[in-house]
Design a protein around this nucleic acid. Structure first.
Length: 271
DNA sequence: ACTGGCTCCTGAGGGC
DNA sequence: TGCCCTCAGGAGCCAG
């Protein structure tokens, strides 16, 4: 489900509702997420407070007085702040109960998400330490993508979805950004010019910024922490639109599997 | 060092 | 109604 805009939307929504709240209890109904939820978590963080909510790539970092929770929403995860006495659903695997009567609940039907713990700088955690730059930072430039891609034969779409290269870009926004930049998703990463990578870097930033402004994309079930859906699906130009007309040339949008993921593109506009 | 393919898991939707 | 298939917003891991 969530790519960078959805995680950022969740992060911003969460912040005012959990920062400085006292942790009264932790409930783990299902330990079997992508990695087991640490057994000691309740004992460790009870009685402390959430001090910060940050995002790195698609990870959410909840800083407490004694360490940092590292959360990932996987494909189907979402976080909501609800009344602590509201009934938990079948897929509400994890929750932090606060002394203000609310709780932060993780729902994740597919269980590809995770809840991990570190007492060190989270940036040095093995899952985070090798990540590439944030796409909305000044570090993502055409020159950077060009330099990293020389000699690489993977498709440019796989290349920009690789979090070692640049973080946060999933299948929806990869398709959208490549359309905007006029680059065919199957073109080899090493065969894209500097000029075109400059356009692509701009397209990635613009696409993600627009999506954040719209509150993310809701295809099936994404909703922000307060339960509101995103609206960027109304602005999607190619994703999920096989057979529809290209908004630029009125040709037909095609769908093809690229590296096991559905890719949508206009064969006229994208080369 | 790269690359493609597989994997974890549940649910929705289509064809028969 | 049920069965079987494919696909779904991620990304770590493995063999070649």
């Amino acid at each position: 489900m969530p790519e960078l805009p959805e995680v950022e939307t969740t992060c911003r929504g969460l912040r005012p509702r959990v920062v400085d709240r006292l942790i009264a209890a932790v409930h783990v109904r299902e330990h079997r997420l992508r990695w087991p939820v640490p057994r000691h978590l309740g004992r460790t963080i009870r009685g402390t407070r959430i001090r910060a909510v940050d995002r790195r790539a698609k990870y959410l970092l909840l800083g407490t007085d004694v360490g940092t929770l590292i959360l990932h929403l996987g494909m189907s995860g979402s976080l909501h702040v609800v009344a602590a006495d509201s009934p938990a659903g079948k897929y509400d695997h994890f929750e932090i109960v606060f002394s203000d009567g609310n709780c932060l609940r993780l729902r994740d039907p597919r269980r590809f998400g995770c809840v991990l713990w570190t007492t060190k700088d989270p940036a040095s955690h093995p899952l985070l330490s090798a990540l590439g730059p944030e796409p909305l930072s000044g570090a993502l430039t055409g020159g950077y993508l060009y330099a990293r891609s020389r000699g690489r034969r993977v498709s440019v779409k796989s290349f920009i979805m690789n979090s070692d290269i640049v973080t946060g870009i999933g299948n929806i926004y990869a398709n959208e950004a490549l359309f905007t930049a006029g680059i065919h998703p199957q073109r080899r990463a090493g065969q894209v010019s500097l000029q075109r990578y400059t356009r692509l870097a701009d397209s990635i930033k613009a696409t993600l910024e627009q999506a954040i402004r719209a509150g993310g994309t809701t295809l099936r079930d994404f909703s922000s922490e307060d339960g509101k859906p995103g609206y960027f699906q109304l602005q999607l130009r190619v994703y999920g639109r096989e057979g529809a007309l290209c908004p630029r040339c009125q040709g037909g949008i095609r769908r093809r599997m690229v590296a096991q993921r559905s890719s949508y593109f206009c064969p006229q506009c994208q080369r």
